[in-house]
């Protein structure tokens, strides 16, 4: 899309941080108000996808590089699993909410809920990286017929 108007480029550059902030809010307050890991992660990915649609693949990949997205994907899942396994060390039960016994808080505060907060953050990061990679693979990558490897071409 070579003919990009100036308005979409500038406005997308201004609006993306607000979308990102809103996604962080939905992830962090997941145990108090509706939301949590899954929708928050998708909204986080939306800010990068807005950059991809409005300004092209180079701008989006400058924000969130390809290798970093793959590593965030796997490490988010690993943080989730290690938190579930460390429940065995602290209380002897797999996947138990051990942080609530260590750091109890008043209800409707950010700290109450224990491990749910950290699990929400891990899932949010993973879903953001995954959804961004899905849209990247579908829209940007092409296959070169002679060498059968995937190279990135201009969208």
């Amino acid at each position: 899309m070579k003919n990009r108007s100036l308005i979409t480029v500038v406005i997308s550059r201004w609006v993306s941080p607000f979308i990102f902030l809103y996604g962080i809010y939905i992830i962090l307050y997941g145990h108090i108000s509706p939301g949590g890991g899954f929708p928050g992660g998708v909204i986080l990915a939306c800010s990068f996808i807005l950059a991809l649609l409005a300004r092209g693949k180079n701008a989006a990949l400058k924000r969130l590089p390809y290798g970093l997205a793959k590593k965030l994907d796997a490490s988010g899942a690993l943080v989730f699993l290690s938190l579930a396994l460390s429940g065995i060390f602290f209380t002897g039960v797999f996947f138990s909410n051990f942080l609530q016994k260590l750091m109890p808080g008043k209800p409707l505060q950010l700290i109450s809920g224990g491990t749910i907060l950290i699990i929400n953050i891990a899932i949010g990061v993973k879903i953001c990286a995954s959804v961004f990679l899905i849209i990247l693979f579908i829209s940007v990558l092409r296959i070169r017929k002679d060498k059968e490897i995937q190279t990135m071409e201009e969208n």
């Binding site: 949590g36 899954f38 693979f137 579908i138």
Partner: peptide, 24 residues
């Protein structure tokens, strides 16, 4: 339903990717 929507999303993404390769 949250879990089911995520499962549906991943199957949908997979089907779109496979049909794109078939189109090429």
């Amino acid at each position: 339903v949250i879990t089911s929507i995520v499962i549906g999303l991943s199957v949908l993404a997979l089907m779109v990717a496979i049909s794109l390769r078939l189109y090429h």
